[in-house]
Design a protein around this nucleic acid. Structure first.
Length: 396
DNA sequence: CCTCCACTGGAAACCTAGGCTC
DNA sequence: GAGCCTAGGTTTCCAGTGGAGG
């Protein structure tokens, strides 16, 4: 890229009018001043939590709904309003996303951290950790409302030990108490839960239906009004955003993301207005970015397996791929994993949408996974070439 | 209708790297 | 330092299986 190119980019940025008024409004962390179409849910949660204001313990609460239906936003919104009502120190609200926290341990540690405890990354037993947190709550006479977002993830990836512990400590604490608000994307996660935990956790339940396309349109229009300058966003572009996001299960978060990226695309191209074309480009870009990012952040072994599957443009099966994978490992000095593990990694790659690995039966010739690469060869090679491990191979 | 392939996928055990307490 | 904890990735072991070819 020459300096001329750079100049042209900057020049265009200077000339083109800034389309955004306040980009923040379209970031995932933004909590809107008002949540359209969620009044019923907001007030239901408020009803459940209200007792905390005169010192009694609210029921535990479970929120259900698919991604982007506003569960998290509503929960945080109500919590922040609740906070405004109490000026005392004795109400602590904690929000933990268990998927980001990743493990039971880190979830609890995060709770402890918000309470002001200093906890190590690892090393304590779960029991020890729990009792430390309990002690802190008692010592402070504090009331805690703990929001566990994506709680299904926690249950799926470990036991429900922590939930059991938390619901139990609930009963034992005094003074002070701990109320739980669980948020789940998965409507069936209840089935994998210990019945004791379930009955305690879901004293109250609330379901969030997906947004309809018309609802999305209104939400987006409102956000767009705050985020963009007047006239910088065509209404047909808003409708297109709503339609694209709506066709993917009424996910409001993705709709808002799409809106923001459309704006960025249009701004970069020096347009006066975000049009349908920008939205389409943004939509394609989001999909592309998702794949690139998934590829880049893959562990080395997963990359090696992808590389192996790229040797078979018309698809292959586990056994054949394992042989190719073995070759690649030998040539790049990589440790060779067992076939069992490779099979597991293939399932992971399938989940990421990088590879299609479906189990097929070939009668006499056994059962195996039919494996097909779902990403472009050139793209894969380009990104994997960034990894020094595969240098030797790429040259041949 | 039966066989038997080439795996699948569950379960448990193992290993490493971290950290605690005494 | 000994003896205990955890996470997370891996290996080991193995019972289970869909369906083409007999």
């Amino acid at each position: 890229m020459s300096t001329d190119d750079l100049e042209r980019i900057f020049q265009r940025a200077k000339q083109g009018k800034a389309l955004f008024k306040d980009r923040e409004v379209l970031t995932p962390d933004y909590i809107p001043a008002r949540l359209p179409f969620r009044d019923a849910q907001s007030s239901a949660i408020a009803e459940v939590l209200a007792p905390v204001l005169h010192g009694s313990k609210p029921s535990n609460l479970l929120l259900y709904g698919k991604t982007g239906t506003g569960k998290t936003a509503v929960a945080r919104y109500v919590l922040s309003k609740l906070k405004e009502q109490t000026d005392t120190q004795d109400l602590t609200t904690v929000y933990v996303n268990t998927r980001l926290a990743n493990t039971e341990y880190r979830t609890l540690a995060e709770l402890g951290g918000t309470l002001g405890l200093k906890l190590p990354f690892t090393g304590l037993s779960m029991g020890e950790l729990l009792s430390r947190v309990e002690q802190e709550i008692q010592a402070r006479h504090t009331r805690v409302i703990l929001v566990l977002d994506e709680i299904d993830y926690l249950v799926k990836n470990s036991t429900d030990e922590i939930l059991y512990g938390l619901t139990r400590s609930n009963e034992q604490l005094s003074p002070g108490f701990l109320s739980l608000v669980g948020i789940s994307n998965d409507l069936q996660f209840k089935e994998s839960l210990d019945p004791r935990v379930l009955s305690s956790l879901s004293e109250e339940e609330l379901v969030f239906p997906p947004y309809t396309v018309t609802e999305l349109q209104e939400i987006l229009a409102e956000r767009a009004g705050l985020a963009f300058r007047k006239g910088a966003m065509s209404s047909s572009a808003i409708n297109l955003c709503a339609a694209i996001a709506g066709s993917e299960h009424g996910d409001a978060r993705r709709a808002v993301d799409l809106l923001r990226i459309s704006g960025e695309v249009a701004e970069r191209e020096g347009l006066e207005q975000v049009d349908d074309e920008s939205v389409r480009k943004a939509s394609a870009k989001m999909e592309q970015d998702r794949i690139d990012e998934a590829l880049r952040s893959l562990p080395i072994q997963n990359k090696a397996i992808l590389l192996a599957s790229s040797r078979f443009p018309s698809g292959t099966n586990t056994g054949e791929l394992y042989i190719a994978y073995n070759n690649i490992c030998k040539r790049s000095g990589l440790e060779v994993l067992t076939q069992r593990r490779v099979s597991g990694i293939l399932a992971e790659l399938d989940l990421l949408g990088l590879v299609e690995a479906s189990v097929v039966s070939q009668g006499r010739r056994g059962r195996t996974k039919r494996i097909r690469l779902l990403i472009g060869l050139d793209k894969l090679e380009k990104i994997l070439a960034e990894d020094p491990t595969f240098e030797a191979i790429n040259r041949t």
